[in-house]
Write a protein that binds this DNA or RNA. Structure first.
Lengths: 344, 344
DNA sequence: TGTTAGCACTCTCCCTTAATGAGTGCTAAT
DNA sequence: ATTAGCACTCATTAAGGGAGAGTGCTAACA
C-alpha cells in the first residue's frame, strides 16, 4: 500500500489534533476541522489503511484513532513544518543570559528552568562534560596541620576540590613545589587528559613519599570523577502533571522517581549525538521505563567544541515542532553566551 | 469540662489508630482494639465531649472521629511515649556515616536521604549556617590575564568561590599580597564576622586601586550570601504519595511545587529553635500552604555550636513518636560525626 | 449517677442498570 | 473512487438501591 499525498495530510491532521487535545481523533473531526473537501467515510477508509500500515492505533473499537510511535516518527521526519519562535519567546530566552554570574552551574541551572518554563515539559541539562574542560590552575592549599585541599580550577569557572591528608613531616614548601609541578604538567590540558597523562614526572619527585603520592592520585581522580554524574540539573519535574494521561498517581510517582536517578539521566543524555537536535520517540527509548515518553535533545558548545547536552522529556504526544525549535534556538543561544564568557 | 484519665486514654487510642489507618475511628473500634473495659456507648459519650472540647472532629455525621490539630498538640505534649529506635535502625544510621568523604555537602545530602528513607516522609536538611562556619584560608588565584578567582575555604571543607576581574596593571605579586592580608585578617573568623569586620586595613593598602577593591568586596559578599539559600537538601519528595489523603493530583502538585521553593524551606527551618526537637502541627504553621502538614525539626552542631537544621515534613497524622526519636537520634549522630571530622 | 443495650437515623461507598453519544465498519448507491 | 446510510460497539455518565459503619438518643440498669 502506498502513502499518497492525501494519506499524509490525514495523518498529519490526526497527529496535530491529538497532540493538542489528547483525545482519540475521529473521522468527523478531521473532516470538519481540517476540511480537505473529503467526506468522513472516505477519511475512515484512509484511516483504516493507515492503521493497517502501523501509523495509527485504536484504543478500542468505537473510539477514534491515536498515532502510534511509528506515526510520530513519520511525522517528525517528513511532515513537520519548522515553527519559528515568536519574537517575545526569543527575547525572553536571550534576556535571561544578560546576567552577571560567571558560575556555570548557575547558568546551566537557569537554562533548565527556562526550558521547562517555555516548553511545559521536564528539562534535563547536563553540566559541561568535565573531560573536555580545561585546567587553568591546580593548587594544594594547606588547611591545617593535618589536611590540605587539592583545588582544580577550570576555564569554565568550575572549582573541584578534594581533601588530602598530609603525612607528618610534609611542609608547606613541599606542597608548593608539588603544586607548581602539577600546574606545569596540567595547565591548559583537559580533565580528560589528566587521567591519561601519567604522573610519572611527579612520582620521581615524590618517590620519597609514597603514601602522599597515592592519596594525591586518589584526590585527583575523585575530584574529576565524582562530579561527572552529579552535574545533572532538572527543571519543571511537576510539569508532567499538566497532561491528563499522567494524572494517575502511580505513573506520576514512577516518573518522578525516575527523575531522581541522576546517573540514568546522565547516561540517557550523554549518548545523544554530538551535533544538532535529536528526537527519540516512545519505544525507541533504550530505557524501558521511558517507553511512554519522548525525548528531544540538543547540545551546547564553547568555541565550537561540544561541551554538554540538554534534553526535554515529555509525553509521546509532544509538541514536536515547537519543542524542536526551542531546543535548537536554546542550544545556539547558550553556546554563544558561554563562548563569549569562557573562550578567553 | 475536665480531661479525666479515661478521656485521655480514649483520645490517645483514637489518635494512634488514626495515625496508622488514616480512617476515621469509631467507638466500636476503640472498644475492641484498645479494650479499656468500657462499652462503645460510653466511649461515644466521651468522644462527644472530646469533640466539644475541640480535640476531635467529625468529617460527617455518620463517620467516626478524627483528631483535630489541637488534639495532636495535646497528644504530642502529654500523651506521647518516647519510642526508642530499634537496634537495627540505630545501626543503619550509624553505618551511613562510617564513610570516607569529607565533603560536607555529601554528608548533608546523605542525611536527607536516610531521614526520608527511615521515616517515609519528606526530609529537608540545611547545610551548615555559613555565618557560623570558620574561615581557614582565603586566596586570590590568578586564572588568566583578566580574571582571578577569590577562594574561601572553611573548616567544614566548604569551598566558596567567585570570579573577579583584574584591572590592567595588577600583577601576581599584588594578588599574593592581598591574599596574605585577607588571610591575616580573617583566618579563624566566622563568615558572619567577615561581613562585619571592615576591610579598612586592606583599603589603605588598596586605596591605589579603588575599582579592584570594590569588585573584591562584591565577590566576598557574593561568595558568602548566595550560598545561604542554595544549601537546601531534599530527600524523599515523592514519599507523600504513600499516604492516600494525598493521592489527589492537585494536592500532590502543590506539595511538590512547594518543595521546589528553596528560600521558603530555608526560612521555615532557619527559624526553628536552637536546640532539641521541635514539632509544628498543621495550622500552627506560619506558611499557609503548609496548614495540612506537620513539621518536625532538629538541629545539628559542631563542637556544641549549632550549625544547621534538619526537618521532616509529612501529613498531620504523622507518626510523631517514631519520627521525634529518629530526629533526636539523627541530630546527635550527625553532630558527633561532624565534630569528629571538623573540630580540629 | 454513671454505664450500657437497643434502635432509628444518616451518610458514604459500591454495585447495577440504563441511557447517551461518539465513532466505527460495512453495504449499496452515486 | 467516493459517499450516504445504518447497524453495531463501547466508554462515559447518571440514577437507583442496598449494605455497612457510625452516630445520637432514650430508657433500662447497677
Amino acid at each position: 500500500m502506498d502513502l499518497g499525498e492525501r494519506k499524509l495530510q490525514i495523518l498529519q491532521a490526526i497527529i496535530e489534533d491529538y497532540i493538542t487535545t489528547g483525545e482519540p481523533v475521529g473521522s468527523r473531526t478531521i473532516a470538519k476541522k481540517y476540511g480537505i473537501g473529503i467526506s468522513p467515510a472516505t477519511i475512515r477508509n484512509e484511516m483504516s489503511d493507515l492503521e493497517e500500515m502501523g501509523y495509527l492505533e485504536q484504543p478500542h473499537t468505537s473510539a477514534g484513532r491515536i498515532p502510534s510511535d511509528k506515526g510520530y516518527r513519520l511525522y517528525v521526519d517528513r511532515l513537520l513544518k519548522a515553527e519559528r519562535l515568536s519574537i517575545s519567546e526569543a527575547n525572553y530566552i536571550k534576556d535571561i543570559y544578560d546576567n552577571k554570574t560567571r558560575h556555570i552551574e548557575q547558568i546551566i541551572f537557569q537554562t533548565s528552568k527556562i526550558l521547562s518554563d517555555i516548553t511545559n515539559y521536564t528539562a534535563v541539562v547536563l553540566g559541561p562534560k568535565l573531560s573536555r574542560v580545561l585546567v587553568k590552575h591546580i593548587q594544594l592549599v594547606p588547611i591545617d596541620n593535618h589536611f590540605a585541599l587539592l583545588m582544580v580550577v577550570t576555564n569554565t569557572g568550575i572549582v573541584r576540590d578534594a581533601m588530602i591528608t598530609i603525612p607528618p613531616g610534609v611542609g608547606v614548601e613541599y606542597l608548593t613545589r608539588i603544586s607548581n609541578l602539577l600546574n606545569h604538567l596540567y595547565r591548559d590540558k583537559s580533565l580528560g587528559e589528566i587521567s591519561l597523562v601519567p604522573l610519572i614526572e611527579v612520582r620521581d619527585e615524590m618517590i620519597q613519599n609514597r603514601e602522599f603520592f597515592n592519596s594525591l592520585v586518589d584526590a585527583l581522580t575523585e575530584s574529576i570523577d565524582i562530579g561527572e554524574v552529579s552535574e545533572v540539573y532538572l527543571g519543571g519535574t511537576t510539569n508532567i502533571f499538566n497532561y491528563p494521561e499522567y494524572h494517575d498517581i502511580i505513573k506520576a510517582k514512577e516518573f518522578l522517581d525516575l527523575m531522581e536517578q541522576k546517573e540514568l539521566l546522565y547516561k540517557l543524555l550523554a549518548k545523544s549525538p554530538d551535533k544538532g537536535v535529536s528526537v527519540t520517540i516512545g519505544e525507541e527509548n533504550q530505557c524501558a521505563e521511558l517507553r511512554d515518553y519522548s525525548i528531544i535533545t540538543a547540545t551546547y558548545n564553547i568555541n565550537g567544541k561540544t561541551m554538554g547536552t540538554m534534553g526535554i522529556i515529555g509525553p509521546t504526544r509532544m509538541e514536536y515542532s515547537k519543542t524542536i525549535s526551542v531546543m535548537d534556538f536554546m542550544g545556539k543561544t547558550l553556546s554563544n553566551y558561554l563562548t563569549r564568557l569562557f573562550s578567553s
